[in-house]
Amino acid sequence: NQASVVANQLIPINTALTLVMMRSEVVTPVGIPAEDIPRLVSMQVNRAVPLGTTLMPDMVRGYA
């Protein structure tokens, strides 16, 4: 089972991601792999991401 990136807090739209906003968790469906967390830092979300939501590739500008 692969860990995915999950929002550690509410992340408002257009917010640049920081390490404290994300955690890794084994979830279904699988989202962005946890090993990509360092790559996600400073990328912006293109929608509001509620606490506990799995980050999907289409939620992060420039990721996919």
Rank of each mutant, 00 (worst) to 15 (best):
G31P: 00
I37K: 06
L40D: 00
I32V: 08
V6L: 12
N46E: 14
M56T: 15
A3R: 05
E25V: 06
T18Q: 08
M43P: 00
L10Q: 13
T18Y: 03
L51Q: 14
T18V: 10
P57D: 07
G52F: 06
M43K: 14
T18S: 08
L17H: 00
L51G: 12
V20H: 14
V5Q: 01
V49W: 02
V26K: 04
T54S: 05
G62L: 09
I11E: 00
S4G: 06
P12G: 08
R61I: 14
V27L: 09
V26F: 08
V27I: 12
V30M: 15
T28K: 04
I37S: 04
P12H: 08
P50Q: 11
N14I: 02
D58R: 05
Y63A: 03
V30T: 12
S42E: 06
L10M: 10
I11A: 01
P38E: 10
P29G: 04
V41S: 04
A64K: 13
I32W: 02
V5I: 15
V5F: 02
V26S: 10
T15M: 13
N8Q: 10
G62Y: 10
D36Q: 10
D58L: 15
P57M: 10
S4R: 02
A3P: 08
V27D: 02
R47Y: 13
S24P: 08
P38N: 11
I13C: 08
L17K: 00
Q2L: 15
Q9V: 13
A16M: 11
V26E: 15
V60W: 02
V27Q: 10
A34F: 07
P33D: 06
E35D: 12
L17M: 09
M22V: 12
S42I: 03
T15A: 12
A3L: 15
M22H: 00
V30D: 15
V41M: 11
S24T: 12
P33C: 06
V5D: 00
L17I: 10
M22D: 01
V49S: 02
V26I: 14
S42W: 14
R61H: 09
M21P: 00
V5H: 01
D58A: 12
M59C: 04
T53L: 15
A34D: 15
V26W: 09
G52K: 04
E35M: 09
G62H: 14
I11T: 01
M59T: 06
P12W: 08
G31E: 00
T15Q: 11
V49N: 01
T18F: 03
A48C: 06
Y63L: 07
A7Q: 02
M59N: 06
M21R: 03
T54M: 04
A64V: 09
M43R: 10
I11N: 01
S4H: 02
T53K: 10
Q9F: 14
E25P: 01
N1K: 04
D36A: 09
V49F: 02
P57S: 15
N1M: 15
L55Y: 01
P33E: 05
L40F: 02
T28W: 04
A3G: 13
S24L: 07
A7K: 01
T18D: 04
I11G: 00
R23W: 03
I13P: 09
M56F: 09
D58S: 12
M43V: 04
L40V: 09
A7I: 08
T53H: 14
A64T: 15
A34I: 11
P57T: 05
E35T: 10
